[in-house]
Simulated scan of single mutants.
Amino acid sequence: MKRLQDFTVGDTFELVREVDPYRPVYYAGASGDYNPIHIDPAVGRAAGYQGVILQGMCTFSWLSDTCVGYLGDPARLLRLRARFTKPVQVGDVIRIEGRCVAVEGAAVKLELSARNQRGEDVLKGAVAEARVGER
């Protein structure tokens, strides 16, 4: 497991996920979010999309997963926030990039971005706070 001294300001990390056609259905089953815009392509098209859109919290969970991959332990992640800016659709490839912006005492602060394959932000203002060790 990574130790406090293994975290350095300027570290970068990323996660890439493709939204397969079943992802909104799987997430609906896991979360209970059966909003028709997530599982019925006709409803998604009526709303102006190519079909269904992914649940925002699924995208947010990928943001969390990116942080945990860098931090090495889910218990270290204290806070995570982001603003939803664009719906994620089936077929989108989401690239989440993170950077360590501060290591202060036992606290590690991260900034993240999440963009689709067209370079459009799907989440903005993403920041995370973690506690890595005692100092």
Rank of each mutant, 00 (worst) to 15 (best):
E111C: 01
L54D: 02
F13T: 00
R115C: 13
Y26H: 11
M57N: 10
V108E: 00
E104C: 03
I53P: 05
L15C: 04
G56K: 04
K86H: 12
V52S: 05
V68A: 14
G10A: 10
E14K: 11
R95T: 15
D20E: 09
R17A: 07
E97I: 04
R81V: 00
G51L: 09
V101N: 06
V43G: 06
A47P: 05
A30V: 14
G32H: 01
D73L: 02
V90Q: 03
E104M: 02
C67K: 14
H38T: 12
D20S: 13
G10N: 06
I39L: 09
I96Y: 15
L71Y: 05
G56I: 13
N35L: 13
D73W: 04
G44A: 13
C58S: 08
T59C: 14
E97N: 06
P74H: 08
R99G: 06
S61T: 11
T12C: 10
L80M: 12
Q50R: 15
A114W: 12
T12K: 15
A46R: 11
D20C: 03
L78Q: 14
G48R: 02
E104Q: 15
M57K: 01
E111H: 10
L78I: 01
R99C: 09
D11H: 05
S61E: 05
L54P: 11
Q5N: 12
L71K: 10
L80S: 05
Y34E: 07
V16L: 13
C67N: 13
G98F: 10
L110S: 03
Y34K: 00
L110C: 03
P87Y: 02
Q89S: 14
E97L: 01
A114P: 11
T12G: 04
R45L: 04
V16T: 15
D92H: 15
A114E: 03
A30H: 02
R45M: 06
V43C: 08
A82V: 04
E104A: 10
P24N: 07
Y49V: 06
L112Y: 11
L15N: 11
S61D: 07
T12Q: 14
A46I: 01
A82M: 07
G72Y: 08
T66N: 14
S31C: 10
T85L: 00
G48F: 06
Q89V: 15
D33P: 12
F84T: 07
Q55A: 14
S64D: 01
P74K: 10
V90E: 08
C67Q: 11
P36G: 07
F7E: 05
A75P: 00
V52P: 04
R95I: 00
N35K: 09
P41N: 07
S31A: 12
D73C: 08
R45Q: 15
D65K: 12
L71T: 03
P74V: 12
L112Q: 15
Y22D: 13
C58D: 10
R83P: 00
T8S: 10
V108F: 04
F60A: 14
E14P: 00
R17H: 03
P36S: 02
P21E: 08
Y34Q: 05
I37L: 11
A114M: 09
R76V: 01
L77N: 02
V52N: 08
S113I: 08
A82L: 02
A82P: 04
L112T: 05
V68R: 14
A75G: 11
G44Q: 12
P21S: 03
